[in-house]
Amino acid sequence: MRVAIVENTRVTEVGQVGIALSEAGAKTATIRAYAREPLPDLDAFDALVVFGGEQNARDDEKHPYLPELVSLMRRFGDSDKAVLGICLGSQLLARAYGGDNLIGAAPEFGWRSIGRTEAGKADPVLSVLPDRFLSFQWHDDTFTLPEGAAHLAENEAARHQAFRIGRAAYGFQFHFEANRDVVRNWMTHFPEVIERKEPGWLDRHPEIEPTDGQLSDQAGLALAHAWVRQIRPS
């Protein structure tokens, strides 16, 4: 099982996704697209993971590799290979299949409640979760669903929290990879950004981490295992 992991920012954490890939014995290759490393070759990998970043999904001028990455995600999906886009990755996947990117339309931060749709209840990945679950959010943008996409999860802040195109191309707006260790690392790297985005959250963190963080970790690892099971090794 060969999996390409595309990073869009310097501080990228594989978290629960990395744990699930390791437990499955996957061989991974990390591509720092933000540092202009060449994007992976479709034929060399069985699956593609695209993580988040501070840029928006239409920021082609500052990040000229984005159109190529969008095209690559679509080619993986059209080839029936598993794709996982998280946060920015989900917005790029929506763009790849004709969705609109809505910049600044859905700010959200912290551990938040998310609900499965009826399609999510029947989905091979989302079906591993209860109807309502917690996951970590950190985004400002959202997207419209591409034509033909299965709408899998939603909440009040951003209706399109998860979707699937075809068999196994998944976009997740929420950071289910972000376990408590990942969140603590983000707190270390970006305290000023977090305080501006959600004033007082850093002070509240010790209270909410043992409850919300633990529940989010459980849901995230279950999702990661379920997505990894969609990979078909060549």
Rank of each mutant, 00 (worst) to 15 (best):
D60E: 15
D43H: 00
A57F: 10
H63D: 11
E54C: 00
E37Y: 09
V49R: 11
K27A: 07
T30P: 00
A26I: 09
P40H: 10
H63V: 13
A47N: 05
L42T: 02
D41T: 03
Y34R: 05
I31Q: 06
H63E: 08
G53F: 10
E54G: 08
A24H: 14
L39S: 00
D46N: 04
T28V: 11
D46I: 06
D46R: 03
E61I: 11
D59M: 01
Y65E: 01
D46S: 01
R32A: 06
D41Q: 12
T30G: 01
H63P: 02
A47T: 05
A26Q: 10
Q55L: 12
Y65K: 02
A29E: 15
Y65S: 01
Y65M: 04
A44M: 00
E61L: 11
E37K: 11
D46C: 02
L42K: 01
A57K: 05
Q55H: 07
D41A: 13
A35N: 04
A33I: 12
V49E: 11
T28F: 07
R58F: 13
G25T: 03
T30V: 14
N56R: 07
G52D: 06
L39V: 02
E54Y: 09
E61S: 13
L48F: 09
D60M: 02
Q55S: 05
V49K: 11
Y65H: 05
A35Q: 11
R32T: 03
Q55M: 15
D43K: 02
G53K: 03
R32W: 08
L39N: 02
A44L: 01
G53I: 12
Y34M: 02
N56T: 12
L42H: 04
A33K: 11
A24Y: 12
G53A: 03
A35C: 03
Y34V: 04
T28P: 06
T30K: 13
V49L: 09
L48E: 02
G52W: 09
V49C: 14
D60K: 09
F51R: 08
F51Y: 13
L48Q: 04
R36H: 14
